[in-house]
Write a protein that binds this DNA or RNA. Structure first.
Length: 448
RNA sequence: GAGGAUGUAGCUCAGUUGGUUAGAGCGCCAGGUUGUGGCCCUGGAGGUCGUGGGUUCGAUUCCCAUCAUCCUCCCCA
């Protein structure tokens, strides 16, 4: 006897059961509809990319999280880490694509993280990306945020219990702040990764980390003062913007960065994204290296420890790596898997185990082909129908419907057949009515 | 990558201060009731006590290692 194989999954990967897939499909319908409303066109890329296509784009930390694949003795391949870099590669390979190229893409990505289900963190998860390649306009960035806003709105995440917040900032502005604090502009990455943690670990620990990295206490102090501006103004776009204009007057580059933010907020207003939803947050930095301009990240205040539900930004320099010259681009990603986990955690997801609306019960005296004919008629009317195949007791058949959440069971024995009727039992309420065969489809459609 | 906790039935967990055949609830299967589920009753299946080693007359229990899972941090979706 051959030894058995233990069925198991790689850490951080999950199966999606019907009760997961049914709501997911509904979410996908909502998303694709909204994406297409904005004029984004669908695209897919392979799960596997050459390793050098991916390396060096995400930063030191990001590179470590790329899954390399062993192939023919080498490690030249990898699973994609996000959808932005594969998109850049795709655009570089297709110079004929009319620009601006607006595309959306919904596919899984893989990260060699430590999984933490409670925070919605997995190694394999779905991203839904929307990008505009070939336009430097801040209006494209505004659309990124707006399209996400519409999705979260449609999924019901705007109420106080969920508390969606859309944080926005700008890499250029961060560089300005770094210089304004008396530091070298290229120290911005070091500073940013430290600053990013300020909400979680507090000022003192961030100061300690900066000290370790060789940043003077004086510069750190000035940085903290500058960054406090957004918090002091509650992150309100206009107030924060005005305060920064005053604070950063005369600082080189400050005008351009703040003009960008002003344009972004104007665009968002025109796209009907309410101001109250936005937080101009100078602490937001984002870890990926490729961002160059506006950046954004979306979270739920109702699930504070939960990871972000989406984020993105402008990456004007990424395409040039593939030797196609300077092509500006900006994009955003919604974490489908994480959004779904969040909805589950909030108890918002009604999950069915089957799409079936009616189950035709098996009766001893009725040939199976008769049941199949009934099912075929209903299916032709668009009613999801299944047939019980075994000669089981009614108890078992009805229980099956209950377990799967099938609302109706249909009983048609010799007597009903002769009279051209069907017994329709609503297993949720236990009510049973006799319905003419000709009215059956309408009855099943409307009854609820 | 850093730190912490936990592994006993499909699930949630008892338990053995080291002692024969390891328990409960829920779930599952069958029957009571083969044209009507949910309640009730009866019976049944299901466990290498995570794995390997050590101590011991004897280990699920004590010790060591290992693996797995979960949590916190980091980072993000």
């Amino acid at each position: 006897m051959a030894s058995t194989i233990q069925p198991r999954l790689f850490k951080g990967c999950r199966d999606a059961l019907p009760e997961d897939m049914i709501p997911r499909r509904e979410m996908l319908e909502v998303m694709t509809r909204i994406f297409e409303t904005f004029g984004f066109a669908p695209v897919e890329t392979p799960a596997i990319e050459f390793l050098d296509i991916l390396l060096g784009k995400y930063g030191e930390e990001g590179d470590k999280l790329i899954y390399p694949l062993a192939y023919k003795g080498g490690r030249t391949l990898a699973l994609r880490y996000d959808l932005t870099v594969p998109l850049s590669r795709l655009v570089a390979m297709h110079p004929e694509l009319p620009r601006p190229f607006k595309r959306y893409q919904i596919q899984p990505v893989w990260r060699a993280d430590r999984p933490q289900p409670a925070q919605g963190r997995y190694r394999e998860f779905y991203q839904c990306d929307v990008d505009t390649v070939g336009s430097p306009s801040l209006m494209a960035d505004a659309e990124n945020v707006a399209v996400c806003y519409r999705v979260y709105e449609a999924l019901g995440l705007l109420d106080d219990e969920a508390g969606l917040v859309m944080r926005v900032n700008n890499r250029k502005l961060l560089r300005v702040l770094v210089t304004a604090a008396g530091l070298d502009a290229d120290q911005d990455k070091t500073v940013c990764t430290a600053l990013d943690k300020i909400d979680k670990i507090g000022r003192e620990k961030v100061a300690a980390e900066l000290d370790e990295k060789g940043i003077s206490a004086d510069a750190t102090h000035r940085l903290f003062q500058l960054i406090a501006v957004s918090e002091e103004n509650g992150g309100r776009p206009t107030a924060t913007l005005e305060a920064l204009r005053a604070t950063l007057e005369g600082v080189p580059g400050a005008g351009e960065a703040l003009d960008e933010m002003a344009a972004l907020f104007d665009g968002l207003a025109a796209l009907d994204v309410p101001d109250e939803r936005l937080r101009f947050d100078l602490v937001l930095t984002r870890g990926l290296d490729y961002y160059t301009g506006p950046i954004y990240e979306f979270q739920l205040t109702g699930l504070a420890s939960f990871g972000s539900l989406g984020g993105g930004g402008r990456y004007d320099d990424l395409l040039s790596i593939y030797g196609v010259g300077d092509i500006p681009a900006t994009g955003v990603s919604i974490g489908l898997s994480r959004v779904q986990s969040a909805l589950v955690k909030l108890g918002r997801l009604e999950s069915r185990k089957s799409p079936t609306r009616a189950l035709v019960l098996h009766l001893e005296d009725v040939p199976q082909t008769t049941s199949l004919r009934l099912a075929t008629r209903l299916r032709g009317e668009g009613i999801p129908t299944e047939v019980w195949f075994e000669p089981s007791r009614f108890k078992k058949q009805i229980q099956h419907a209950v377990k799967l959440g099938i609302p109706f069971v249909l009983i048609q024995g010799p007597d009903e057949l002769e009279r051209g009727v069907v017994q329709v039992k609503d297993v949720r309420q236990g009510r049973q009515v006799e319905v003419m065969e000709s009215d059956l489809a309408d009855h099943l459609r409307s009854a609820d």
